[in-house]
Write a protein that binds this DNA or RNA. Sequence first.
DNA 1: AGGCCTTTGAAGGTG
DNA 2: CACCTTCAAAGGCCT
Length: 411
Amino acid sequence: MPQLDSGGGGAGGGDDLGAPDELLAFQDEGEEQDKSRDSAAGPERDLAELKSSLVNESEGAAGGAGVPGAGAGARGEDEVGAEVSACPRRSSPAAAELTRLKAPECASGMYKDTVYSAFNLLMHYPPHSGAGQHPQPQPPLISPHSPLLLLIFQHNKASQPAHGVPQLSPLYEHFSSPHPTAAPADISQKQGVHRPLQTPDLSGFYSLTSSSMGQLPHTVSWPSPPLYPLSPSCGYRQHFPAPTAAPGTPYPRFTHPSLMLGSGVPGHPAAIPHPAIVPPSGKQELQPYDRSLKTQAESKAEKEAKKPTIKKPLNAFMLYMKEMRAKVIAECTLKESAAINQILGRRWHALSREEQAKYYELARKERQLHMQLYPGWSARDNYGKKKRRSREKHQESNTALLTASLCQTHL
DNA sequence: AGGCCTTTGAAGGTG
DNA sequence: CACCTTCAAAGGCCT
């Protein structure tokens, strides 16, 4: 049974956050994936075989989507088009047609991902990639909520990009290096940043009012290095040693909205919030004179309701989606997330275990750090903050069932 | 303006 | 323990 390196990567050994589900996920797909992947001679996988497997997957995943031509084995581009054309039910006919027309073109780059390394892909975000092979802005691999980015910002705080393309620091490149060179002196020591090694409660680092959220500039400069709780138990230092960029090498500065991280450190002049903390709504807060009209009880309740929301850490698939979304959009000229997510879901299944493992590992680190940053946080805290139709449907069905049973009772 | 769609995974709740 | 529900991201679409 394949197992992920739940702690061997330097997570401190005592990492209990290695999700058992990750292993289960591999178990579930294990045999099927073994067949297709073991036969793949390295990155140059047999496309026909993969396409065939994808078609089979799409039969199951797309449900009644009506994939044309599926189920008869590998037949070339038609199936690839079928995969892409599995659009959401609510997609407009025009969009579906566009998708179908774009399918072969989309498929041309579809299977490159199977040999993608998450970290290697990160290296494909050169400091000035905008002029190169990546005309489309590429999102970062790591979640915008990821405190991992704070580490990177420490290396990017001084430089200024000339465009809005999100940049990744050499730190990422170092992550991806199979033989990372010896890290230079501790960054925190270099920059005089205090990093508590024992940090039972780090939530204060990101305590920010919701009003400050809306005032964030799109280009963030760092008056001082953001604090980053880097503890040995967290294991980040071991996992991600500092890069070995040449002295004086200008680090690009992030301008992507998703990278507008901040320390929220008390007394920190930047006071830019961690992206995992978001205001409950995009609405601006009431002006003081408006608030004065409110009763104390109302304002108290409102205050409670307006508490910044700490979002869930992203799971492996979400991290994968964030990374690959722009690529799929560029390849398929799709914009509807529902359709893109369907494609990404199939690509996710087409990934090798090693490739998926990288995202699982990254997600595990996200959870680990999230837990350290917000010790008292629970996923339950965000329950009910989204109104979902499924729940309403469920309630409706329950109501219908109840009604039916009541009717029967009365009859 | 805000929910829906769509995906997988994590986590909490329930029986 | 198994199963169910909710949320995480994303952006066009729909009400």
